[in-house]
Write a protein that binds this DNA or RNA. Structure first.
Lengths: 230, 230
DNA sequence: ACCAGTTTTCGCCTGTAAGGCTAAAACCGT
DNA sequence: ACGGTTTTAGCCTTACAGGCGAAAACTGGT
């Protein structure tokens, strides 16, 4: 009753790294140097080392592409294992979602570049589908977690923040509503300082910061709560 | 700059199968027949076949433990790859969350049994942690999706349904509130029929069914919506 | 110094969803 | 018919999302 012959497959880790650059959600891609898909854009990553954990491995691979200290968030996304996803050898891939805050410009090697996430170049393997899964995950978590902290710099104005949300969500976000929602949830707070606004005048904008810099799930999100406790 | 020697690791798939049995959330476990962890309870699953996809593999493995037709939901959960998670060989594991509706009693082999999920027996490997991840996922999705359809039989009364939710969530759920929430969301509808209630009288309960039997995400869950379209 | 233009911020209002509570409805057995 | 039991419907409160307009706070030009 044993199934098909058990396989011993290669395993790779990949990362979907997003950053908002010039008002657009961008993804870090790497130009592949060898066949198959030589010259195509792919997600950064590589083979799992013999003694590495998965998290450990993706951090090591990324260290060759971006300054890992700029990574404000990293979480596992999904694992793909279709026998045909890699034309040559059988290779499973575990992907991660990573975020870089909007103000930093990490040094990247020559074979690596940022591309617009809504309209990426043709990508090798099944990496385009993995990137879409990353976008979906990011969009969903912007609603019910404080994950915005990972897209925004340490301090920001509300109009800047709404710009990051707009880029990531793909639709307009009213700064006034965003402010209320995040303040009520206790995700952000005023720093007390303010900065002059745009080139042609305008009221100076107050600076805000996220209170936490780790992922937290919004309470209100859990519906069907336990009955009121007394 | 090449990392550690690339590994070619074994890969297994595991499933966290939940069912509400006698008002309690239960998990299907399997008594392991060989070392390591011989005799310990583990999650059902096994080695990935050489030509199988991951989804395909977990369905094949499960077919040996439960009638797969009883599975109303199955989704990928997470992948673990700590080098120490398997004492002998390096083995990665991709886990799935599966659900069986409350009224069925699938035939299971002798080495397989249902155990209370809140208070499981000692389990081998890292399977206890995987099971907890499955519970967290289930609890979260009960809030913002229609995943209840996979826990409940085709037709049910509201007090039965609130029992399934209570077991899965681990706290009381008011039947009257649950009814309103699910009706407003359009997740459930009345069948028109009703059944006599408990042993000692009482108003007969209306029967309900879920309108969809596939996972759908509740709209209201996405906060920070696009501005009103006209 | 004042005014027009700009951007941010505040306040008021609306709609909708969650959830508590009570009364009514609909049955059973005696 | 009446008390016990369970389900269902209605009413109310609270909380959050989001629209809109007015006020605040600045810049630059006249």
């Amino acid at each position: 009753m044993a199934g098909p012959r058990a396989s011993v497959a290669a395993h790779e880790v990949l990362a979907v790294i997003f950053q908002v650059r010039q008002q657009r959600l961008s993804v870090l891609l790497w130009r592949r140097a060898r066949p198959p898909y030589e010259g195509a854009w792919v997600l950064p990553g590589g083979r799992l080392g013999a003694t590495e954990g998965l998290d450990e491995s993706i951090r090591r691979q990324l260290a060759q592409k971006v300054d890992v200290r700029d990574l404000t968030h990293l979480e596992q996304l999904e694992t793909r294992g279709d026998p045909e996803r890699h034309p040559a050898d059988r290779t499973l891939a575990t992907s991660y979602l990573g975020l870089v805050p909007a103000d930093t410009d990490p040094a990247t090697p020559e074979d690596t570049a940022w591309h617009p996430a809504p309209d990426p170049p043709p990508m090798g393997f099944d990496h385009a589908a993995i990137m879409r899964a990353g976008r979906r995950r990011l969009r969903a978590k912007l609603s019910y977690t404080n994950i915005g902290f990972a897209l925004a710099p340490r301090e920001f104005t509300m109009s800047e923040l709404s710009g990051y949300y707009r880029a990531a969500l793909g639709h307009d976000v009213a700064a006034t509503n965003l402010r209320r929602v995040l303040l009520r949830r206790g995700q952000i707070e005023e720093t007390g300082e303010s900065v002059p606004s745009g080139r042609s005048g305008g009221r100076p904008a107050a600076l805000f910061r996220f209170r936490a810099r780790e992922l937290e799930i919004t309470d209100a999100f859990a519906v069907l709560r336990p009955p009121s406790r007394e």
